[in-house]
Design a protein around this nucleic acid. Structure first.
Lengths: 70, 70
DNA sequence: TCAATATGTCAAGTATATTTTACAAAAAGA
DNA sequence: TCTTTTTGTAAAATATACTTGACATATTGA
């Protein structure tokens, strides 16, 4: 999995630290860091919470259409 | 969590059984059933695999904009 | 400079997603 | 009917998401 730069960017746009976002969605800073760093496969419920906090949708932050044609 | 009727519908549109979809994305039938039944919080990677198999996006099948809960 | 904040990472533990095996009932087909 | 497929569900085991606590470094601001 690659780094999630869209998440990092959306967080920066809200001027939130990883810690801020973590607290807002109820996980630890390490979990947010791991998602941005790309080590990992979060649950859709956590992704949804992150998106709502940052004013984005699942497609905005977690969908990759690279592989895909539609 | 409510039933995921959009998933059920998209699967029906492809004429796939829960078992068919499960095999296509590499999980068990019970996992697909649990997601449709709504007991459950799948990983985003699994959601993505399901969406790709069914020709849908994360927003199509897993985003809820009406009600706000996490 | 110096202190405080932000990020990256890691090892060990806990919570939970997912599997395996199994049973029952509804729906579909012949 | 009778048989097969599909769906719903459950208990116990395994894999992995996520936590806790900690340490190091980079960056920012005073």
């Amino acid at each position: 999995m690659a780094k999630n730069l869209r998440l990092k960017s959306a967080r920066a746009a809200k001027d939130m630290s990883q810690k801020d976002l973590a607290e807002a969605v109820g996980v630890t800073r390490q979990t947010i860091n791991a998602i941005e760093t790309g080590d990992y496969n979060p649950t859709v419920r956590l992704c949804t919470a992150i998106c709502r906090t940052l004013g984005k949708t699942l497609n905005d932050l977690f969908w990759e259409d690279d592989f895909y044609v539609n």
